[in-house]
Design a protein around this nucleic acid. Structure first.
Lengths: 216, 216
DNA sequence: GTTTTTATGTAAACAATGTTAACATTATTT
DNA sequence: AAATAATGTTAACATTGTTTACATAAAAAC
């Protein structure tokens, strides 16, 4: 329409920004190219100068989304100032919070539709991020005597399953918990601890962060 | 096309049958009305004589799907011939198996898109099915002394989260476990037991069904 | 500084999809 | 036998992602 709108300048970033903005309220399936072109006041096909397809844009979102996710979790999981068990607790809590605060993004990252993208970026074996980082932290806990010395992969699967399940049930509307998911997370964490922590360790009540949180 | 194809007879059931057949291999998002009309050799709008919309057909599938799901789980969870802990074990195992054998259906039932339908049918408070049945079984376990006497709702959430999480991670391709998910399920179950079972009970090794399955 | 090339935008057209409206045929009821 | 309801078809729409041909601005080459 407008004549001077050629060469918008940063259309690509605009598209991504609007798309990210959109999935804070909706789901990625509801995102349409018309929404993007309308919001940027461009034509319906302008996006194809910056992304080869709608999926390509979404794939870019996924890469960025995993970076955000990792940026939220990694520092907590490897904070050298805190004891390992507290890092587990806080990282799990952050995991759930990330999902509840970004439900559309979480579903995009952990849904089935774009698995192939995730496989490109996130290798299960990479110790720096995601599942690999969790597994490494568990091995660290085993060596320190905090955790039972079992297969760390399997233990990581148990932990991840619980977190992913709780997060999914909350954001997909299977519980009317809304904001007070804390109770369920803490029950989940205690259950995980009971299953994983070495029995020799006296835990919980002696941990500073657990005051008022973990009742016997 | 053909003249004598008027009044197919049982088109509605045919549509449903084909749709169910379809999601054994694909996902419900990929189901299109053309697929249904082609498979029944009818016109593209014939379906509207039996369902008010595509979503209406899918909603019917969901109702039927939950019946199947419940039919697979309920008998196991309340089998009077087996001890409660074994019923838990077997029901959880059946839960995961149902998901892995019917991934498309499981995603349809427990995905977010059609939450409203599920809310119509499945009340969290209904003790006969789903979450309510699990909660009731947990309360039964508490009364018998098997389980810790904590909030049964919260305990049920922990159990369901773990199962839903493991099932989702498997069918959504986050683990290359494919068929041998047994190991992970058993680790999960042991972890759940450790978190829920009353410590006074000597378990696992004395249970007949646990032979060779649950190592200390 | 002009020309050429590249980057970035638009407009028009397609095919696929869900849906509706008008019409046709068979089954059922009266 | 006639009237009505049930069930199916055809044609047309709006929406969506996408491609093609064209237009304009910016950058590079000369």
């Amino acid at each position: 329409m407008k004549k001077n709108d050629y060469h918008h300048g940063n259309l690509k970033e605009e598209f991504l920004r609007i798309a990210f903005d959109f999935i804070t309220q909706h789901d990625v399936e509801q995102l349409t190219l018309k929404i993007l072109s309308d919001a940027t006041d461009t034509s319906r096909s302008a996006i194809y100068r910056h992304f080869s397809s709608k999926d390509a844009l979404i794939e870019t979102m996924i890469l960025s989304g995993f970076e955000q996710f990792d940026a939220a979790l990694s520092p907590i999981l490897r904070d050298p100032k805190k004891p390992l068990i507290e890092r587990f607790y806080l990282a799990g809590r952050t995991y759930i919070r990330f999902a509840t605060e970004n439900p559309g993004l979480y579903r995009l990252l952990f849904g089935k539709r774009y698995v192939h993208i995730r496989e490109e970026v996130i290798s299960l074996g990479d110790e720096r991020i995601g599942f690999g980082a969790l597994k490494k932290a568990i091995e660290e806990g085993q060596q320190s005597g905090l955790l039972k010395k079992e297969d760390s992969f399997t233990q990581a699967v148990v932990v991840w399953s619980s977190l992913h399940g709780l997060a999914s049930l909350i954001i997909d509307g299977f519980m009317d918990v809304e904001n007070n998911w804390d109770i369920h997370y803490e029950a989940l964490f205690r259950s995980l601890l009971a299953g994983i922590v070495s029995k020799k360790i006296k835990l919980l009540s002696t941990l500073p962060f657990a005051e008022g949180i973990m009742k016997p």
